[in-house]
Design a protein around this nucleic acid. Structure first.
Length: 308
DNA sequence: ACCCAGGGTTGGC
DNA sequence: GCCAACCCTGGG
């Protein structure tokens, strides 16, 4: 297998990008890529090939060094996929401008420099991952998804190391819903939701295409039909799996933070917070949600809100 | 050894 | 609409 390399320079995208911050920001579309030395490695599916891709970046806006292993030249396809996954084809300076114009958000940019959406390369993994993240801890969630990949996913060996993908629908559906089956990966009661949802997806023709071409509102309603998918998980899937930027996933933290900043701390239901975020922030809602959460973690606001 | 929370969802009232 | 129950691992 031949190793090929190309560079993505910061002048090829608008705004900032920091790979390390983005990869480790706890976005649950899929686990962070496997880290080896200073490189992040992941199997990527292109239209006709499965390719191991390794990327590294020294720091903010430094050049992105991309290695991949293939007999043919796939520079363009790999580049496009990476631009999609790390949202580099989006002009994020629009988000910066909005944040600067909004009094209450002025501070948050400094805590999020270079952070981008980390989108899922596969809608199916995103859906199952997101269901698995519900009422779970990031640590346990990461472990579960990685174990499922290793046990049931396709793999490729490069330089004596094996890399795994998340299993496809038809493989996943066959995992038994038992203690030594799906539950052995520590997903608990979520196993049934994950399998039921897979069955629903398989039973409908062109499921993903339909979601992709639907409006946000229609797609949201369809998400709620899936087992284990409530409004928070639905918005996560739409944002990270289907690139619908108006989604504003509301978990306990986004609820507390939004309350604190915009509702004077008075108790407000998740659905109301979600609608508020979408109407107030529009196309930027997904990013604001990501930035607010990260800001709260880094600034100490999380600790402050915990006590209330 | 016990207790508790974890980036929610579900089903019952 | 509100509220308990859901599973179970990691951390006090």
């Amino acid at each position: 297998m031949q190793q090929k390399q190309f560079i993505i320079d910061s002048n090829e995208y608008m705004g900032d990008f920091d790979l390390n911050i983005t990869m480790n920001s706890g976005q649950t579309s899929q686990p962070p890529w496997v880290k080896e030395d200073n490189r992040y490695c992941e199997l990527i599916t292109l239209s006709e090939d499965k390719v191991l891709v390794e990327i590294s970046q020294e720091g903010l806006n430094d050049e992105l060094i991309v290695n991949y292993y293939s007999e043919e030249n796939l520079d363009e396809e790999v580049r496009q996929k990476l631009f999609y996954i790390f949202d580099l084809d989006y002009d994020i300076t629009k988000v910066y401008d909005y944040i600067k114009s909004e009094d209450k958000l002025k501070d948050i940019y400094n805590f999020n420099t270079g952070l981008r959406l980390y989108k899922a390369q596969s809608p199916f993994e995103c859906i199952i991952s997101s269901i698995c993240s519900a009422n779970n801890s990031i640590k346990r969630w990461t472990k579960s998804i990685s174990m499922i990949r290793k046990a049931y996913g396709d793999s490729i060996s490069v330089n004596g190391r094996k890399y795994y993908q998340f299993p496809l629908e038809d493989v996943f559906i066959k995992i038994p819903d038992t203690e030594d089956g799906l539950k052995s990966f520590g997903v608990g009661y979520r196993s049934t939701h994950m399998l039921d949802t897979t069955e629903m997806i398989l039973s409908e023709e062109n499921y993903y295409e339909k979601i992709k071409s639907s409006s946000y509102e229609d797609a949201f309603r369809k998400m709620l039909e899936l087992r284990g998918v409530g409004s928070k998980v639905a918005d996560c899937i739409l944002l990270y799996g289907f690139n619908k930027r108006v989604a504003y996933p509301v978990d306990v933290w986004i609820n507390r933070i939004t309350n604190y900043m915009y509702f004077n701390g008075q108790k407000t239901g998740n659905d109301k917070i979600m609608k508020f975020g979408q109407e107030k922030f529009g196309e930027y809602a997904g990013y604001i949600q990501l930035y607010l959460f990260n800001y709260a973690r880094l600034s100490g606001l999380t600790e402050k809100l915990k006590k209330q």
